[in-house]
Design a protein around this nucleic acid. Sequence first.
DNA 1: GTCTATATTCAGATAGAC
DNA 2: GTCTATCTGAATATAGAC
Lengths: 199, 199
Amino acid sequence: MAHILAVAEQSFAEAGFSGTTMERLAQAAGLPKANLHYYFGTKEQLYRGVLENILALWLDDMNAITPERPPAEALTAYIRAKLAHTRTRPHASKVFAAELLHGAPHLRRFLSFELRRRVIEKARVIRGWIDRGLMAPIDPIHLFFNIWAMTQTYADFEVQVRAVLGVNRLGDAEFAAAEKTITRLVLKGCGLHWQEGKP
Amino acid sequence: MAHILAVAEQSFAEAGFSGTTMERLAQAAGLPKANLHYYFGTKEQLYRGVLENILALWLDDMNAITPERPPAEALTAYIRAKLAHTRTRPHASKVFAAELLHGAPHLRRFLSFELRRRVIEKARVIRGWIDRGLMAPIDPIHLFFNIWAMTQTYADFEVQVRAVLGVNRLGDAEFAAAEKTITRLVLKGCGLHWQEGKP
DNA sequence: GTCTATATTCAGATAGAC
DNA sequence: GTCTATCTGAATATAGAC
């Protein structure tokens, strides 16, 4: 079952919902397609299963943001965590991205409630830092939008990154450069100290 | 014909390639579906027509980056141009994003040649600024990846932005906040002067 | 050039044997 | 529970009248 979900995640990421056929999934999972229907009912329900598997990931990373930590440390850790997920779970990122692209018909509740609540909570932490004079007065919610955008682009639009860089795959060097660039933009953008050498 | 392409762009953006039916396009365009096939041949060829319409947009914005301009001014103008396209052509952005998400089978050449060449050319301009001590030594190519990510997220993942902000549509206020945040991150991140009030 | 009607293909779902 | 074979519906594409 977990195996089927993993195969489905990859296929939905690569081919989209309509582009993924139950036949293709069955072949990739190594069993007849009737079994998929036996386990999950409809293709729609299987897709929902894949999505739900992903949502927890998105909320978890934000744990790095806590009031006691110095902002530079917390933001650096957050960026690192997001980028690690981008690297280890690129298919999850792509499925989520495709769902958003098409208006998120399955994620309306998640976005408007769970995610919104969590962002507002963490934005309050950032406003606390600003009020204490620990960082520049940046809009915390837009800051989140932009950190998500920058980190996820290395999964979602990986093919563009590879083509422009002229490499066959994104390895340690590329992710190190990405992390350095994003961390620099965010820390300096927030008026925080950032130093070249610091990993 | 241009009308059909506009309708198709919107439908491909909202429903994806497989999710878009010729019947649906015909209805939206107000003519029988046989005509679509008469004009464009196959659905595939129609999709290629939509994509090609979009590519020029992407390359054009980079004209803002020229060696003579001060970096802060050029980067501010570039961000503004990208964000303006995000706002006026959200469907184009989404079609392009979906194509990248699914591995860009139709854009391989464009990405590896036209786009890559243009990015390398403009990266050289930025390195010139760095060498002249006009800005901090940031990786120019990753800088582009991240500017694209930040500006396009307001089209591609608009539904997420709206849900988290709790608004029904992205208007002047939201785009102003986006532009301010992105410009701040980029300029300060590049060690350039940025001032709150400056639009 | 434009449309109606239809052929063809293919994917999702299920019946029913084992 | 697992599989083969099949049904059903839908979407692309085209034939052929006007």
